[in-house]
């Protein structure tokens, strides 16, 4: 029972995903006879231009003299590793490849972080691959006190994490969805990385009778 719900959810997620992709391409065709009120995608917003310059991003005031002084994200991102989510930058690989050199200490550029290399494996119910949480990528950026103990209790088995709470901005969702790569239908596999091998998916009555 539980498994079939998981599959239903997955199918829905994938359905939305392909819907978005399809809509982006099919929207190009113009149907001259069709009135605007019946436009093909009424509520689905097409992905707006990524990395817009401050003048055009909808939150900066173009009449403010200081706005013209601000750097455009696309200029800064030119040499960095790309991704398809969030800032459309892979911050972790850009850091690892030394394409950026963010300071660990406010004023002393020579101080380096103490990186903690421990993977936490979280077994996930259903057919979804398990989650491997890498301390390494996180401690390159953050201090232990950013997460422990307020967001995650530093004790095995003490933390209940669900997709619903993440999507509501709790647990991993404090940063993933605001600053770090977001939780979308296309980022599942960035966290769900450990395959369970051959999972036996539940079959419908129809396929059982074959």
């Amino acid at each position: 029972m539980k498994k079939s719900y998981t599959i239903l959810l997955l199918t829905m997620l994938m359905g939305i995903n392909s819907f978005v992709v399809k809509a982006e391409t099919s929207n190009e065709a113009s149907n001259k006879g069709v009135s605007n009120v019946n436009s093909f995608n009424r509520l689905l917003k097409k992905e707006s231009k990524t990395n817009p310059p401050p003048m055009e991003d909808g939150i900066h005031d173009a009449d403010n003299p200081g706005t013209a002084l601000l750097q455009a994200p696309a200029t800064a991102f030119e040499t960095l590793d790309k991704s398809k989510h969030g800032n459309h930058i892979n911050w972790v690989s850009s850091l690892d490849a030394a394409k950026i050199a963010p300071r660990w200490d406010r004023s002393d550029p020579t101080i380096q972080p103490i990186v903690f290399d421990l993977n936490i494996i979280r077994e996930v119910k259903g057919s979804m691959p398990n989650v491997i949480y890498p301390h390494k990528a996180h401690t390159e950026w953050l201090d232990c006190s950013n997460c422990h103990p307020d967001i995650f209790i530093p004790q095995k088995g003490a933390n209940q994490i669900s997709m619903a709470s993440i999507m509501l901005g709790e647990k991993c969702g404090v940063c993933h969805g605001t600053v770090a790569f977001p939780v979308t239908t296309s980022t599942c596999s960035l966290c769900h990385t450990q395959s369970k091998g051959n999972v036996q998916l539940p079959r419908s009555q129809a396929s059982n009778s074959q």
Partner: peptide
């Protein structure tokens, strides 16, 4: 999720 246009973060 695709509706915002300001830079992420």
């Amino acid at each position: 999720s695709t509706s915002g246009s300001a830079e992420y973060g």
